[in-house]
């Protein structure tokens, strides 16, 4: 599988960029050229230079360092929110698909209802009621984006449960829980992995949008979204405040999409043929 990934050039490029951002996040103190929250009155809104390769903001903070530290926030929100969504989706989808009948109908109608909410406004409303902490944002994004995974898993489980190896396990006395965890979920995980990878990009976008609106990650903690927001008012004089975080958001989301598409081609070759 890893070989296939290297062969798929676009997906591999995506993977490389994701690894780069991961390294940013892991080794932020070593990579950042400055303290991201150090206010420096002597270099307010200075253009990119040798000292500040991406320039500084209106408090004289180094943009490059803020982006490096911001990658921690963006990535962890992306991963954890999607992790929550995948977890809920797998449990919900596999139970619904496995038991079928009325259980399935009831659970899938609930999914339909969840899908009817305009998710972004739901998130806005919830964050407005709770306080906008990083933890709350992760949970809310996760709790409003699991429906796709649930439908995917349910559809897989519906066909997988008719396989003979499931019947064979049942003859040997396996419980429902055993069958779901040992046979159904491992075989349904391929498409979930693809959708999760695509989902990380989406979650990063939602976080950026929330922070941009000022109800996401709160200053002084840097996130790509709130760096972008800081740049909004000075766009005419200091383009670097907007362009650089924008480029990072764009490339990261693109990287996840490329990797996701690549994984789909590798894990589900039958889809590629169509």
């Amino acid at each position: 599988m890893i070989l296939d990934l290297i062969r798929n050039k676009m997906a591999f490029a995506g993977l490389l960029f994701i690894v780069l951002i991961l390294l940013f996040a892991l080794f932020a103190p070593a990579i950042a050229t400055n303290d991201p929250s150090k206010v420096d009155a002597s270099s307010i809104l200075s253009a990119p230079s040798r000292d500040h390769i991406f320039g500084t903001d209106m408090l004289g903070r180094d943009i490059f360092s803020r982006i490096v530290y911001g990658s921690r926030i963006s990535l962890s929100i992306g991963f954890i929110a999607v992790g929550i969504a995948v977890l809920i989706g797998i449990v919900f989808g596999s139970v619904s698909g496995y038991y079928g009948g009325r259980v399935d109908s009831a659970m899938m109608r609930f999914v339909d209802i969840m899908l009817c909410f305009p998710t972004f406004f739901l998130i806005l409303a919830v964050i407005a009621v709770l306080e906008p902490s990083i933890f709350n944002i992760m949970v809310v994004i996760g709790a409003t984006s699991w429906m796709g995974v649930a439908r995917l898993v349910r559809a897989e489980v519906l066909t997988l449960k008719e396989r003979d190896y499931v019947a064979a396990a049942r003859v040997m006395g396996a419980s429902d829980l055993w069958i779901i965890t040992k046979h159904l979920i491992p075989n349904a995980i391929g498409p979930v992995l693809v959708s999760a990878t695509l989902g990380v990009g989406g979650a990063i976008l939602v976080e950026s949008a929330l922070s941009f609106l000022g109800i996401g990650v709160q200053p002084p903690t840097p996130s790509w979204g709130n760096i972008l927001m800081d740049g909004k008012s000075t766009l005419g004089v200091a383009w670097w405040l907007t362009i650089y975080p924008g480029i990072f958001i764009l490339l990261t989301v693109l990287a996840y999409n490329l990797l996701g598409e690549g994984l789909r081609d590798i894990l589900e070759p039958r889809l590629k043929e169509r």
């Binding site: 396989r163 003979d164 190896y165 019947a167 064979a168 003859v171 040992k182 491992p186 075989n187």
Partner: peptide
């Protein structure tokens, strides 16, 4: 015990 027809289908591929 049971032995099925299609050995592709009766063994868990994972």
């Amino acid at each position: 015990q049971v032995i099925f027809q299609d050995p592709h289908n009766s063994l868990d591929p994972k």
